[in-house]
Every structure is written in structure tokens, then in C-alpha cells.
Amino acid sequence: IDAAQIVDEALEQGITLFVVNNRLQYETSRDSIPTELLNKWKQHKQELIDFLNQLD
């Protein structure tokens, strides 16, 4: 699994991931984030931050 897949998966569930001051953040209108997704974010945090920083 790679960062792009995780970002896409989040988007499919209505969650936008982004980076502020090198910290992973998210925006969503959902009430809660699925635990499975949160765990993936934690496991791949640095990859996600690097990936999202490249997009900007």
C-alpha cells in the first residue's frame, strides 16, 4: 500500500488529507473516522506527509 492509495481511500470516504507545518491534518463532514483508516494514517504518517508535500 502506498501514500497515494491511502489518500484516495480517504477521499472516497469524504475525507481530505493535507499537511500543515509538516503535520498530517484532515477535513471531513463525517462524524468519525474509521479506525482502520486512522491506523493506516499512523502507520504511514511520514510517507503521507512526504507525498502530500510533493503535491503542493
Rank of each mutant, 00 (worst) to 15 (best):
I33P: 05
Q5Y: 09
L52Y: 03
D31G: 11
I1D: 07
H44F: 14
L11R: 14
I49F: 03
L37M: 08
E12S: 13
S29H: 09
D8W: 15
D50C: 07
N39Q: 12
I1K: 07
D8I: 15
Q25F: 15
D31Q: 12
I49Y: 03
L37R: 01
E12G: 11
Q46T: 09
L52E: 00
L48I: 14
D50H: 09
E12R: 15
G14K: 04
E36P: 06
A4K: 14
D56W: 09
R23S: 15
Q5D: 08
I1G: 08
L11G: 04
E27Q: 12
R30E: 05
V7P: 01
L37P: 00
P34C: 03
Q46L: 09
K45C: 15
Q25H: 15
T35K: 12
H44L: 06
E27H: 14
W41Y: 05
V20T: 07
Q43P: 03
E47Y: 06
V20G: 04
I1R: 07
T16A: 06
L37A: 03
I6E: 02
Q54R: 12
L17K: 00
E47L: 12
E12K: 15
E36F: 08
A10I: 02
N22W: 04
L38C: 10
T28I: 03
E27Y: 14
N21I: 03
D31V: 10
E47G: 06
K45P: 04
K45N: 14
N22S: 06
A4C: 09
N39K: 11
I1C: 12
K42L: 14
N53L: 13
K40F: 09
Q43Y: 07
G14N: 05
N39H: 09
L48A: 00
F51L: 04
I49K: 03
D31N: 10
I15S: 01
Q46A: 09
T28H: 06
L38H: 04
D8K: 15
Q13F: 14
D31M: 08
Q5R: 12
D50R: 10
H44R: 05
A10H: 01
W41H: 02
N22V: 05
E9D: 06
S32G: 07
T35M: 13
W41K: 01
G14E: 04
Q46K: 11
G14S: 03
Q25D: 06
T16W: 12
S32H: 11
S29V: 09
L48M: 03
F18H: 12
Q13D: 03
D50A: 13
E9T: 04
N39G: 06
N22G: 15
A10R: 01
F18K: 13
Q43W: 07
V19H: 02
A3Y: 09
S29E: 12
Q46G: 06
N53G: 07
Q5F: 12
N21T: 04
L17W: 01
H44W: 12
L11H: 09
V7Q: 02
I33R: 01
I15L: 02
V19K: 01
L52K: 00
P34N: 04
V20N: 07
E36I: 07
E47C: 09
E47S: 08
S29G: 08
V20S: 09
E9F: 04
R23L: 15
L24K: 00
Q13Y: 14
Q43S: 11
A10Q: 00
T28Q: 03
K42S: 12
F51M: 03
T16G: 04
Q13C: 10
V20W: 10
E47D: 08
E9M: 05
Q13G: 05
Q5W: 11
L38P: 02
Q5T: 10
D8E: 15
G14A: 04
K45S: 14
T35N: 11
D8Q: 15
Y26L: 05
H44G: 03
W41P: 00
A10K: 01
N53P: 03
Q54V: 08
L55M: 12
N39W: 09
Q54P: 06
T35C: 11
L37F: 07
L11T: 07
L48G: 00
D2N: 14
K42C: 15
